[in-house]
């Protein structure tokens, strides 16, 4: 099993000014999620908007499944009112935030945003009306293995991925690139059910023999479908790698560290 980069960390979704939606941490039911939102996505370009001004609220709307009740919150500035917010397409700088608790029975996270412009027109940021839909990849998908098999007799290697997935998942594909070789471009291939199951009873899916350069390192992410809806698992933006790098082997932590941590009340 390939452990997720930020396993166990709280979920955070950043909506960047260049219209990416970046999920990091464990997005799953019965946990909180913080939405980070760049207002440039929704404020009309000709409007003189003051970042963080509570009199001009941007509303985050969420649903936890199609047809389920909607809840909403005003996005707030944790960093005060800013006259000249920084443009940062990575979403690390000036963003508004809101925090929601995902209920235990949530099926997915559906998000959209609204803003009443000074002109009186209501603006939406809703993925062209489809709304932004996030699956709970931490629960839905586990990448069990990813390999690049090389045969010295051939100039190519074979890339393979094996995944365990909830039974509600209808289809899975892998999108991959070769690290350090921009000429390879990106490719996407479907995985197939093997008919086998893991210890938790989840179906095993796999794809193998995908041709890549000899002894290449492959970077990939997983797409999967539930109810016809596509969701993404890109390991919190880190992407998965094949073959897996050697894990970092740290010496065990000193006993006094554990004692001090436990003693802290």
């Amino acid at each position: 099993m390939i452990e997720r980069t930020h396993a166990g960390k709280p979920a955070l979704i950043t909506f960047t000014s260049d219209f990416h939606e970046l999920v990091i941490g464990d997005l799953r039911p019965d946990n909180p999620v913080t939405l980070r939102y760049d207002p440039k996505r929704i404020i009309p370009q000709d409007e003189n908007y003051l970042f963080g001004d509570s009199k001009r609220p941007i509303i985050a709307h969420v649903q936890f499944g199609k047809g389920k009740p909607e809840s909403s919150q005003v996005l707030i500035s944790q960093i005060g009112i800013i006259e000249n917010p920084v443009n940062d397409p990575t979403g690390h700088r000036s963003v508004l935030t809101a925090r929601f608790d995902i209920p235990a029975d949530a099926e997915e996270l559906i998000v959209w945003f609204s803003y009443l412009a000074q002109s009186g027109e209501m603006h939406y940021d809703s993925d062209e009306g489809a709304n932004f839909r996030f699956g709970f990849a931490s629960d839905d998908i586990t990448v069990l293995d990813a390999t690049v098999v090389s045969d010295p007799q051939t100039p190519y290697s074979g890339f393979a991925v094996t995944v365990a997935a909830n039974d509600k998942i209808e289809a899975i594909s892998v999108r991959y690139r070769v690290v350090g070789d921009p000429t390879f471009g990106k490719n996407e291939k479907p995985l197939q059910k093997t008919g086998q199951h893991d210890d938790e009873g989840r179906s095993i899916w796999e794809v193998a023999g995908l041709t890549v350069p000899y002894r290449a390192t492959v970077r990939f992410k997983i797409y999967y479908w539930i109810g016809g809806q596509r969701y993404k698992d890109d390991d919190s933006g880190h992407y998965y790698l094949a073959p897996q790098p050697e894990p970092v082997k740290a010496p065990p932590p000193p006993p006094e560290l554990a004692r001090a941590a436990k003693a802290w009340k």
Binding site: G52, S77, I79, G80, I81, I82, E83, V86, R93, S94
Partner: peptide, 15 residues
């Protein structure tokens, strides 16, 4: 960054 990225009390002008 730009003295506009640390938490502030609500309504504070950042910068």
């Amino acid at each position: 960054f730009l003295y506009t990225n640390a938490p502030l009390p609500p309504g504070n002008q950042a910068g």
